[in-house]
Design a protein around this nucleic acid. Structure first.
Lengths: 210, 210
DNA sequence: TAGATTGTTAATCGATTAACAATC
DNA sequence: TAGATTGTTAATCGATTAACAATC
């Protein structure tokens, strides 16, 4: 089966995830209908942008009325695969990795980090209870991912280990990677990487704070 | 005085910060000269992109030879304001904020978070020693920023408080904000916001992990 | 029906890439 | 000089925005 998902721009996918969040909030507030104008504003984009984004994936509105909050929310959840539980592995339990695990904000968003991995045997033993997630040795990463059918991984290892870990994840079947290391990852075309370089974000802000 | 910095594209500034990091590594390795081809590859971009980016800020290379690692590194550091110490404040010491403080990776990159703030008096008392940074009540934020001439702030508060905190920071003189809250911040044109929405990053990856 | 708002096409804008003359 | 590589201009590409016909 061919996934036609391929030709939706990355940025559109990202914004769809923003819209979903706004719709969730509206749903909680009991709002039943929303216009592209209002939804766009709450997501921080222009309304033609929102309509264009939605046009990539279908037709969900009623002219003259707007969008059904429930219907559009469900549609986005469905096409983004947010209705099914997504298990995630974290690789690297150093400063950043353990901070992210303790943060715990991912769970609230419907993700569960089911296991963490580290190359340092000392970390493996001591951090398991500290971070509230079982920590295994990185040697077990490949088998674990394959056995549990894990499709998403978070990389929080030093730059020097980034590519190696990415290779292991991809080899074991991971399709999407959130990379917090500054390493530039080389992966096959069908694998998607989102890179978040916290240091680079701060460094680049420096330019404007001059 | 007019800052001509204004008309350099954001993405170019971000990439300059990537180049700087690569140059730093090359410098440590004792490399003296690097071509746009090699430097671009190590930063994960194409070489014309790199040359175009550099063209925005000046001429640093020697045709036929490449770029002097030291000279280009120093030049980028200078124009990005990375030579002077940049004090930063963290607002929000909940899950994410305290995780980021304990992470400590910013200091290694030349930034120091000199103070943190929270609206919950309980947090103020209990977290100070836990995160290794003095934590004040958010009521003191404005004065502190003004008194210490702070120009950069990190927001790690719940969405509901995001805009309010941004207003306080901007009012007190902050020029650049790293926003980890999902709130869409409204700030004056001269203030720059980099938004990092960890949950949205993960959610959007879900689409590809389907 | 009249007013509102979508879905979509066309126009604009900006960013990336290709190509090459300049020049070390 | 010949080979290499920059700096820059022109071409391409994609994404954003504007505009409006379709239609509820």
């Amino acid at each position: 089966m061919v996934l036609e998902k391929i030709d939706i721009p990355r940025k559109t996918v990202y914004r769809l995830s923003l819209y979903r969040r706004c719709l969730e909030k509206l749903r909680e507030q009991g709002v039943e209908t929303v216009s592209s104008e209002d939804l766009a504003r709450s997501a921080g984009v222009k309304s033609p942008q929102l309509r264009k984004d939605l046009a990539h994936v279908g037709q969900f509105g009623t002219r003259g009325l707007g969008y059904g909050v429930d219907a559009l929310g469900d549609a986005i959840n469905g096409m983004m695969g947010l209705t099914v539980f997504q298990p995630v592995v974290m690789v690297g339990v150093g400063n950043l990795g353990s901070a992210l695990l303790r943060y715990g904000g991912f769970r609230k968003e419907g993700f569960e980090i089911i296991a963490a991995f580290d190359a340092d045997p000392a970390h493996v033993k001591t951090t398991t209870e500290e971070v509230g997630v079982p920590v295994h040795h990185v040697d077990d990463l490949s088998r674990y991912v394959a056995d549990h059918g894990v499709r998403m991984g978070i990389i929080a290892v030093p730059e020097s280990a980034g590519q190696e870990i990415a290779d292991v994840l991809v080899g074991a079947g991971v399709q999407a990677i959130l990379n917090f290391s500054p390493a530039v990852l080389n992966v096959p075309d069908e694998v998607v990487v989102n890179q978040v370089d916290l240091a680079a974000e701060l460094r680049s802000l420096c330019f404007f704070a001059g």
